[in-house]
Design a binder for these strands. Structure first.
Length: 259
DNA sequence: ACCTATGTTGATAC
DNA sequence: GGTATCAACATAGG
């Protein structure tokens, strides 16, 4: 299930392989993935348009058409979505092809190829003119001062604050655990209890975790992730990892090092 | 067979 | 307003 790094790889795939291609037909018949649109609405908006740019903020993507003159297509990979362009796929880290019966939304190009949202669980989205402003700054781009101010406040557990997409866009469950482990910070500490040095350290490790995951193929390549099982141990100090629900999600951390 | 788990988001309730 | 919980979806695994 994709977080910021997987989405960035999907965006890059679209940018490399789909821009400049003209849409001949659109399959928008999955009314759950295309909610709240009716079947045919997205087809009417995008048929005949040419893809001109692929953008991303956090886990949200949007594609411009007709050099910015046409409507904007918002895409979200949800919990199990991937983007397939012709025979290339990025997104959900499972085997690269997936099952074509999970195709939920498709742009068919005039040249015979296609861009598809393939999503096992149907929690992904394809929408017209998405509202990107509802998201906080991108987790990989946010400036130091903005990070201090937005993340370092509130009584909610630090991990919940990190995963709040209105605070900071792009961090999900695995990336949060990996980042907090790298920064040696406890996920259960109130976000407002961090000092500036801790917040700066958190931001630095977050950026490093994101860069590494984009390069290596996704958040599942993180150092902590393979140890993130019941009875798993900290790969640095060997202590048994703690496990609890934090911010509504299953959380693993090193109770010795992460304070 | 049945129950639990899953990397997301959004609506709802306090 | 901030925070917590549950539901939406479909599959995989014990």
């Amino acid at each position: 299930m994709p977080e910021l790094p997987e989405v960035e790889r999907a965006r890059a795939l679209i940018a490399e392989r789909a821009l400049g291609r003209r849409i001949a037909a659109v399959d928008d018949t999955d009314t759950y993935v295309c909610r709240p649109h009716q079947p045919g609405e997205l087809a009417a908006a995008f048929t005949g348009r040419t893809l001109s740019a692929a953008n991303r903020r956090g886990k949200a993507m949007w594609i411009e058409t007709d050099d910015g003159e046409g409507p904007i297509l918002g895409l979200h990979l949800g919990m199990a979505g991937r983007i397939v362009v012709d025979d290339h796929a990025e997104g959900d880290p499972a085997p690269s092809d997936g099952n074509p019966s999970w195709d939920r939304f498709t742009l068919h190009f005039e040249d015979g190829g296609a861009l598809t949202l393939r999503d096992k669980r149907r929690l992904g989205r394809a929408v017209l003119d998405p509202r990107i402003e509802a998201l906080g700054p991108d987790a990989g781009e946010i400036a130091r001062d903005a990070f201090r101010e937005r993340v370092g406040r509130g009584d909610a557990p630090l991990k919940a604050r990190l995963m709040d997409q209105a605070v900071l866009a792009g961090v999900g469950n695995l990336l949060a655990d990996e980042t907090l482990w790298r920064a040696r910070l406890s996920p259960v500490r109130p976000a407002g209890s961090l000092d500036d040095d801790e917040l700066d350290r958190l931001r630095r490790e977050l950026r490093a975790a994101i860069r590494s995951a984009i390069r290596l193929g996704g958040v599942h390549t993180g150092e902590l992730i393979e140890h993130r099982v019941r009875g798993g141990h900290c790969p640095r100090c060997g202590a048994e990892l703690a496990r609890a629900t934090v911010g509504g999600r299953t959380t693993y951390w090193c109770p010795v090092e992460q304070t």
